[in-house]
């Protein structure tokens, strides 16, 4: 426990050290999440467009 507190305090420079490291990993993780979300959005949109086309191409075959 003492060791953990000592580690977290970084010799009194905790604010500077953790601000720098925190922002770094927050941004990298955020980038990965944004990439994954936009991939899902694009796939959904492309899929919707593809379905519309395949429904329209052979007329009267649906239902």
């Amino acid at each position: 426990m003492q060791g953990l507190i000592g580690f977290l305090s970084q010799g009194g420079y905790a604010f500077y050290v953790w601000s720098a490291f925190g922002m770094t990993f927050a941004l990298l993780i955020a980038e990965m999440l944004v990439l994954r979300r936009s991939r899902r959005t694009i796939l959904q949109r492309v899929g919707r467009l593809a379905r519309l086309r395949t429904q329209n191409v052979p007329p009267g075959e649906q239902s």
Binding site: L35, R39, I42, L43, R45, V46, G47, L49, A50
Partner: peptide, 18 residues
């Protein structure tokens, strides 16, 4: 993502999504 967006009108993207 960029390839998907830009090539979405091409047959291979549609086939893959299907």
């Amino acid at each position: 993502n960029i390839i998907l967006l830009r090539e979405q009108d091409n047959a291979w993207v549609r086939k893959m999504v299907d």
